[in-house]
């Protein structure tokens, strides 16, 4: 019975079925499954999708479809983790978002999905995120990594603003910062004082591991 739910959840993610994923997550809670096991099952599924994407067997719409399905189940499981007080193991906690003035979400979503697949705990703040919102999330979640995206040349300097703000509030040394997006280059990343940059989503995952030494 339990395995059936976990297997179903894994399948729902791999078949990009939001509704089914959400329903099965609810059932998992009803059946009092260990929420950490449920989370593991979903992570395995998303990792399989991520690997297939890396091999070239799957494409972007598949990756995002799987992420959406996982996203549909996630709040239910997180609520359960909180309620039961279970301790969640992860590689690290990531706060991610596209900077203020920029509404491009694709690259950021890819990175978040692959980071989740890798075993990071990812808080995706979405698009058009102001500096203060990033800071608040970093404090709230006690994040290890901040990942920022900017697609447009006009909005790239916004990343610098966030870093300045972190310095001002004495948070800069407590967190690793990675940046990406169409408008960002290696030089720019160095110039604004980020810890790392990578042009590709799979590369960003390797970078995240490197930054936290795991």
């Amino acid at each position: 019975m339990n395995n059936e739910i976990l297997e179903g959840l894994r399948k729902a993610i791999k078949e990009y079925d939001n509704e089914k994923a959400e329903n099965l997550a609810k059932r998992a809670v009803e059946e009092k499954l260990d929420p950490l096991r449920v989370l593991d099952a979903m992570t395995v599924a998303i990792r399989e999708v991520g690997d297939a994407f890396g091999r070239g067997d799957l494409w972007l719409p598949d990756l995002v479809g799987a992420a959406d399905a996982m996203q549909a189940a996630m709040p239910i499981i997180e609520e359960e983790i909180k309620r039961t007080g279970a301790k969640r193991e992860s590689l690290g906690t990531v706060v991610a978002g596209t900077v203020f003035g920029d509404i491009h979400s694709i690259g950021k979503t890819m990175v978040c999905t692959l980071l989740t697949a890798e075993g990071f705990k990812v808080h995706d703040l979405g698009v058009n995120i102001k500096a203060e919102e990033f800071l608040q999330a970093i404090r709230n979640y006690n994040a290890d990594i901040l990942a920022m995206s900017a697609l447009m040349t006009m909005t790239a300097p916004e990343q610098k603003k966030v870093i300045e703000q972190l310095k001002k509030e004495g948070l800069r040394d407590k967190i690793k910062i990675m940046v990406g997006g169409g408008a960002i280059t290696e030089e720019f990343a160095k110039e604004i004082g980020a810890d790392g940059y990578d042009p590709t989503a799979p590369g960003a995952v390797k970078l995240a591991r490197k930054l936290i030494g795991r």
């Binding site: 990009y16 494409w59 972007l60 719409p61 598949d62 995002v64 479809g65 992420a67 959406d68 509404i103 979400s105 694709i106 979503t109 979405g126 698009v127």
Partner: peptide, 17 residues
């Protein structure tokens, strides 16, 4: 309208190819 998006839609997975 924005913030609506098509990338994760089933229709996209089927049709883009």
């Amino acid at each position: 309208p924005i913030p609506g998006h098509y990338l994760g839609k089933k229709h996209t997975r089927k049709w883009w190819k």
